[in-house]
């Protein structure tokens, strides 16, 4: 029997459903916890960030108007494919932790996807309301997605943190641009491959690998980004600058060092629309 070839994967960006290299043609080395070389990853530039926002914006209309049922099915499919690649994820995550910890993280990440997938058709019941008003109107409030959400992943939770960030935003119909941690980007690249093969429309999730410090200021000041998740930004000086430029177009900001999960995280990226409907009597 012949020996099989050693086919190494090139870790690329994920923009608009495609896997381009960085337009800057740069890459950076990824090392494991002991400092051993793992792979070269694409080093995204501000222009890749710009392209990702354009992709996310153009995907927004179809994704946000898809039925909740459809979004739930698509998200559940992501968890299915993740389950199929469980061993690969464990191997990748364990480059920065023990096998046991990695297993716990990967299983939790898969469970979390399923958990979020279940929320698509329940959100409006739980976060919306019928409001009593002293006028002849039927008054109700319904949640709507914020728009394009940008986020920066934590390095100490290479998969679970990323899943939390992405799933909580897209569950309600937002589209996202996420910059993976520069220390632990490989699980993010694998997650991109999972998402690309799970019926998630191109552009709904865009994943960049590179330095948050380089890309974040451009996404924070970007007038076409509606929400920004700074929970993974450790550098407090950078965080202040990002919050400041986010104010320009009144982005929703998830502040640094905030730990939100579950429904409260989903609610972060919702707008409330209140409708006064005449009752006619």
């Amino acid at each position: 029997m012949s020996e099989s070839l050693d086919v190494n994967r090139t870790a690329k960006l994920f923009i608009g459903g495609k896997f381009p290299r960085s337009e800057s043609a740069r890459s950076f080395e990824v090392h494991d916890q002991e400092g051993n070389f793992l792979a070269n990853a694409s080093l995204a530039s501000r222009k890749d960030g710009r392209d990702a926002v354009v992709a996310a914006r153009s995907a927004f209309s179809a994704w946000s108007s898809a039925t909740a049922y459809n979004r739930g099915q698509v998200m559940y499919r992501v968890a299915e494919i993740m389950q199929g690649r469980r061993d690969q994820f464990i191997a990748e995550v364990s480059a920065w932790s023990s096998i046991e910890e990695a297993t716990i993280e990967v299983d939790a990440a898969i469970n979390r996807w399923v958990w979020y997938a279940g929320w698509t058709d329940k959100l409006s019941m739980v976060t919306g309301s019928n409001n009593p008003v002293a006028e002849p109107f039927f008054n109700f409030s319904i949640p709507e997605p914020t728009g394009v959400v940008a986020g920066f992943a934590l390095s100490d939770s290479p998969l679970l943190g990323l899943v939390e960030m992405i799933a909580a935003a897209i569950v309600s119909g937002n589209t996202v641009v996420v910059v993976a941690s520069d220390r632990t980007p490989l699980p993010a690249v694998s997650l991109a491959e999972v998402i690309a093969t799970s019926d998630v429309p191109g552009g709904v999730v865009n994943i960049l690998t590179g330095y948050a410090k380089e890309i974040a200021p451009w996404l924070a000041s970007h007038m076409d980004v509606n929400g920004i998740d700074l929970s993974g930004i450790g550098d407090s000086e950078l965080a202040v600058e990002l919050e400041r430029s986010s104010a320009q177009n009144l982005k929703r900001v998830l502040r640094p060092n905030t730990h939100l999960d579950g429904l409260s995280r989903v609610k972060m990226w919702l707008e409330t629309k209140t409708v006064w409907h005449p009752r006619g009597y």
Binding site: R50, H222, M223, D224
Partner: peptide
């Protein structure tokens, strides 16, 4: 043009 004058990327809302 807006990007060049403000330094921030603009969007179709503007």
């Amino acid at each position: 043009r807006q990007k060049l004058s403000t330094g921030a990327y603009s969007g179709p809302d503007y």
